[in-house]
Design a binder for these strands. Structure first.
Length: 400
DNA sequence: AATACGGGGTA
DNA sequence: TACCCAGTATT
């Protein structure tokens, strides 16, 4: 088929399909650029169904650029709690403050200006410009790369930045005049609901008859994408430090460093354990004969780390004393849990602990390091926690 | 070009 | 279990 006709057909049919099939999503009910912006940041690497409740709460709490600009960062992180990729929240607020101060609260409609804002990359810039301002800019995300790879039977590796650039150029050329916002959303909507990563529903696809990938029988093999490295395993001993006396009903928590993983979030004190003795090394078997990592993980989850609990508890006590000057007395194993980041896998062994006598003394009530606090477990709203620690704390609360 | 950066849905 | 999600920043 003539290439130009294939493109024209695609844009026309996709737009018609979208107008009759689009989902009623909260951020589609207005063109408020601030709402669009917030939704697009939340939607980065995150599913629509996950975002919806966060979006409602966030807009209710921070209804305008001015409101978000004026909020304490901890409140913003708390509103983002559980959503992940917390630099999105910190960058969003930083950028909103920039818009508040430099642009009089008006989200820029200029591509260069909006692209300079923190957290606004090529996808988000194109999404805001097209959806809020109807500018003919492409918005190429994972959905769009998949849909176009299949429709045009492109076999370039979508993990490569150069491929994204090429698809952006292709997508820009597909935008119907005056329909940038609807068209970009239609492309993503098709990828999310019909042209899915696995088992695409080609029979219900509005552009199936000219889809080169389907016609070649390779739709399910596309897009080509090099697979990510598996996360590296880490073992961590976690201290669930239960207060007594003046700190009865409280847990000892600490704030993470300013930068890096889970920056500025709060957590239970913990320490990394030495790497587990790998089964293959220990038994001298080849890696191919070694048990799958999942089997090793299940072994860890079963109740004990390789070391005895006594050894791990001693390690935890010594580490917190040396690193943070915290005196604790580990009492007993509490639970194990596992947490998977995209690049790290935490095997966590949680121990119920008490504060050492010195930390309870009324003579030294302020001896905690500045990033430590006693937390009332029923008043957690000021402290944003990553989900992994929320799970542990909620398990503890459920047993009270 | 490769890596850091969360958490969860789904087949 | 493997894949991937309305990606961006940093190195």
């Amino acid at each position: 088929m003539d290439n130009q006709l294939q493109k024209q057909y695609f844009s026309t049919e996709l737009l018609l399909w979208y107008e009759r099939s689009k989902r009623d999503l909260p951020w589609r009910r207005s063109k408020n650029p601030y709402y669009i912006w917030v939704s697009e940041i939340m939607l980065q690497q995150t599913r629509v169904d996950t975002v919806i409740p966060y979006f409602h709460r966030f807009i209710e709490k921070f209804p305008t650029v001015a409101a978000l600009a004026a909020a304490p960062e901890s409140e913003v992180l708390k509103a983002w709690e559980g959503l992940g990729y917390y630099s999105r929240a910190r960058n969003l607020q930083s950028a909103v403050r920039e818009v508040h101060e430099q642009y009089n609260g008006i989200v820029p409609s200029d591509k260069a200006e909006i692209s300079e804002l923190k957290g606004v990359g090529p996808y988000t810039a194109g999404a805001i410009l097209s959806i809020a301002y109807n500018q003919p800019e492409p918005a190429v995300d994972g959905n769009v790369m998949r849909v176009l790879s299949r429709y045009f039977a492109l076999e370039d590796d979508i993990a490569k930045p150069s491929t994204r650039i090429g698809i952006e150029r292709l997508a820009q050329g597909l935008i119907p005049a005056g329909e940038a916002g609807a068209f970009n959303q239609a492309l993503m909507e098709l990828g999310a609901t019909v042209c899915t990563p696995r088992a695409p529903q080609c029979l219900t696809c509005p552009v199936q008859v000219h889809c080169a990938g389907r016609l070649a029988g390779i739709a399910e093999q596309l897009p080509v994408k090099t697979k990510a490295k598996p996360p590296r395993p880490e073992r961590r001993a976690v201290a669930l430090i239960v207060g007594s006396g003046a700190h009865g009903g409280q847990l000892l928590i600490r704030q993470r460093p300013q930068d890096g993983l889970l920056a500025r979030m709060w957590e239970l004190p913990h320490a990394e354990l030495p790497p587990a003795r790998s089964a293959s090394a220990a038994e001298g078997v080849t890696p191919a004969a070694a048990p799958a990592r999942g089997a090793q993980r299940r072994a860890a989850r079963g109740g004990v780390p390789e070391e005895s609990h006594d050894v791990v508890m001693a390690f935890l006590r010594e580490h917190l004393a040396a690193a943070d000057g915290i005196g604790i007395v580990p009492k007993a194993w509490f639970m194990n849990t596992e947490h998977v980041f995209s690049h790290i896998l935490w095997d966590m062994f949680v121990y119920r602990c008490e504060a050492a006598a010195a930390a309870l003394s009324s003579e030294a009530p302020n001896s905690l390091p500045p990033n430590y606090r006693w937390l009332n477990v029923n008043e957690m709203e000021e402290y944003p926690f990553p989900n992994v620690f929320l799970r542990i704390i909620n398990e503890y609360k459920s047993l009270l």
